[in-house]
Design a protein around this nucleic acid. Structure first.
Lengths: 220, 220
DNA sequence: TAAAAATGCGAGCTTTTACTCACATCCACC
DNA sequence: GGTGGATGTGAGTAAAAGCTCGCATTTTTA
């Protein structure tokens, strides 16, 4: 992979007028991506929809990639902010409640604008934005590891890093797959419940509230 | 999304000579995709690398998409064939062994040519080939559901379809994430073990060989 | 209010790239 | 060996889309 030209970031908007321009451009990008798809998202089309000239667009975004990147970054930030908050909230909650809250947070984020998320998932690798996704996954992983450390006594997992990787990837994939293939699942309580059950089982050993432990004995 | 023109499939190769041509084209596509990336994979470049004229390429592949599709289809078939075989083999194996075998199969498939897999994962959504991936997931899901039905007595899951969805998506995501971000993990025994443990825990209730059941009692 | 800076404009340039077509060559079959 | 179908060729076409640049307009500043 030969190094890309690496375009200089354009000047940042300073006046109110230009801030609105940038907003309009991003809004148009999001709208076109989610309603018309990636291939219809040409810079000229975006500029037109934003009610802005193509020249103005290139004053703030050095190239097409940076548009998708900007949207993706925003998305990424939102998710991370929400996750941080949730992790804070459940710091001392019972494990099942904590896990459920985190899973539900992920579902909620994606329920907001499924179309946009779908296209971002699809566009992100094509553009160079895999980096951002990776950063998000890493940050989420760190939050999880922190949680594990604080609650180590209640967990039976050994390698926190590895476990965090498994869970981050699984939950991300499940919400994405739901968005892409079974949008209905995002509204389905069972989806959150089963996912929670899987994770809690992995982290602890069984979800049953206590004492109700079942022992299915098989041939050793 | 307006319907695509849907290009007619070109004529199939009949003589040995042309079969070799088709092979060379596919090999070149795979090579360029895995070594130079998606954006370098122009039709002219592929034809050149294959030692074939651009005209010949278009005699057998109606458009660029169909090249990536053909590769992806082949990949998909391989995975499905391997999975079918493995599911057959473990039909009566203890659950943990069965799960481990399936997980390992997925890892093995991706270990073969990680670069190609990486690019396919990245290129597939950009091209229309999401369909094929979905078909694979559906087929894998059916294999899993079949397994669940045969072994229902040993499982505590209720909704086989939903559980199959969770597991198919999780395992696929984990192997892909490993390929993309931590290629080393594919060689790491712990990766297979932890993934297996997560799944077995979800399916049954705890992996401990029997009698060794642990009861971590928490505040109800 | 005048100069300077920031912002906005959009015709059109440039490059890229998928794809065609008219023709040459090879091979099977009689 | 000759005929017709299969196969191979690659210069060239056409369309798309990213992006520039010279200039107009608005806002800030002094």
């Amino acid at each position: 992979m030969p190094a890309k030209p690496l375009p200089q970031p354009r000047k940042a908007p300073r006046q109110k007028r230009s801030l609105e321009t940038v907003d309009a451009i991003l809004a148009a990008t999001a709208h076109i991506l989610s309603k018309e798809g990636l291939e219809k998202a040409t810079t000229n089309h975006i500029a037109a929809r934003a009610g802005v000239s193509i020249g103005s667009l290139y004053q703030y975004f050095p190239n097409k990639e940076s548009l998708v990147r900007a949207l993706n970054d925003r998305h990424t930030q939102e998710i991370l902010a929400l996750l941080s908050r949730r992790f804070e909230e459940v710091r001392e909650a019972p494990i099942p409640d904590a896990v459920r809250a985190i899973v539900r947070a992920m579902v909620d984020v994606h329920r907001h604008d499924p179309d946009l998320h779908r296209v971002l998932v699809q566009a992100t690798p094509a553009v160079g934005a895999k980096v951002e996704t990776r950063r998000l996954e890493a940050a989420a992983g760190r939050l999880l590891v922190g949680f594990f450390q604080a609650r180590a006594a209640e967990l039976r997992i050994q390698d926190f890093e590895l476990s965090a990787f498994l869970l981050v990837q699984s939950v991300e994939a499940l919400t994405h797959a739901a968005v892409l293939e079974h949008p209905g699942l995002l509204e389905d309580e069972r989806f959150v419940e089963e996912t929670t059950r899987m994770i809690v089982g992995y982290l602890t050993d069984g979800v049953e509230p206590a004492g109700k432990a079942r022992r299915s004995r098989r041939k050793s």
